[in-house]
Amino acid sequence: MPRVVVFDRTGAPDVLHIVDQPVTEPAAGEVRIRIEAIGVNRLDQMMRAGSYPGPVRLPHARLGCEGTGVVDAVGPGVEGPGVGDAVVITAVPEMDLNGTYAEYTTVPAASVVPRPAGLDATGAAALWVAYSTAYGALVEKAGMRPGDHVLITAASSSVGLAALQIAHQIGAVPLAVTRHTAKKEGLLAAGAAAVIVTDHEDVAEAARRHTGGAGADIILDSVMGPGLADLAKAARAGGTLVTVGWLDPRPASFPMSWPLTVLGYASFEHTLDPTVVRRIAAFLNAGLRTGALRPTVDREFGLDDIVEAHRYLEQGHQAGKIVVTVRPRGVRRASAP
């Protein structure tokens, strides 16, 4: 029988284990996907560790909101994707029941889009969550325009690297923020107009220096925490701060740098809206065709190594996406070094 990653209690990565589970037939409006590759996300870590703010149905909970594969079966009434089509999963509304950490999963047909031409399964698994989050926050939510200075925290994360590329595609000026000097050259190579290293620079002062004294038009923050109010000082008067994550789980300090627009963004706000999904897919396809967008894969693991993949995620050293490839039973990928 096909393999599925589950957990019966929350905790460290080793609560994850693989079980055999029969495939389910797709209901009306659903498609079944034979998974080829999975993107590993911080949301997965939060659910597994017990820090996710929503309910998780235990035991035998599943994980995974991102993946790509081939349509294996379609339910009644499906007019879009057909058997054999390569697709990217755009949303898994009940990931604790049908998450992508598996050889097969069943999702609404409206929750898949065609896999972009020329993108292999590994690249496709690194695409949707990072790029739809960065696009949704910057373009749909903050209204990023050509010439805008965009300050991006956690810039070496998958969302951060996607934001750098999307800013370039729009014609904005991306300013990368990182804690580690060792990541500076890589971020410059990835397209940052400047890199601010928080180990020895004040972010607000550096942002004003790189923007002619004005400050950033938009701040894209994945960190939150007690430093949020100080980060907001890097914005220009009347600028916009969009939070897209909480890498720092401590309570966030509220910005008082008025005038400032503060927005919270979760990708499900748009990825459950078919109209916006079409815009996102069109934007990403255009960027992939021109080469402006290039999904960044930090490291690959096999499904049998899912515990090691989560341990690596928790170290926080990756630049780009951690991808888990799914191969037929008996074909095992060696653990990454």
Rank of each mutant, 00 (worst) to 15 (best):
H149M: 02
G143Y: 10
T100G: 02
I218G: 04
V177M: 05
I196N: 01
I196C: 05
I89H: 06
L138N: 01
S158Y: 01
L119S: 03
S111P: 06
D202W: 07
G136D: 09
V78W: 07
G143M: 10
A130P: 13
M224Y: 07
G136A: 11
T198C: 09
A91M: 12
P93E: 13
V223C: 02
P81R: 07
H180V: 11
L175Y: 07
T198R: 08
Y101G: 01
P114Y: 03
G213E: 09
L127W: 03
V87G: 06
V223R: 00
T181I: 11
I196Y: 08
V150Y: 04
E201S: 13
D221T: 08
E103Y: 06
G191P: 10
R115K: 14
L138P: 08
K183I: 08
K184R: 15
G160M: 05
V139D: 06
I219T: 00
L97Q: 14
A124R: 05
T105V: 07
A121E: 07
D202V: 13
T122C: 01
T211H: 12
A110H: 11
S158T: 01
A142M: 12
K141W: 01
H200E: 13
V113C: 04
V197P: 01
A206S: 14
E205R: 15
T90H: 06
S158N: 11
D221Q: 08
G213P: 08
A130M: 13
L164N: 02
R209D: 13
L187V: 10
A192L: 11
A109Y: 03
Y131M: 11
A194H: 15
R145P: 09
R145H: 12
A86R: 07
V197R: 09
V129M: 14
V203A: 06
A204M: 13
R208Y: 10
T178W: 02
A192T: 11
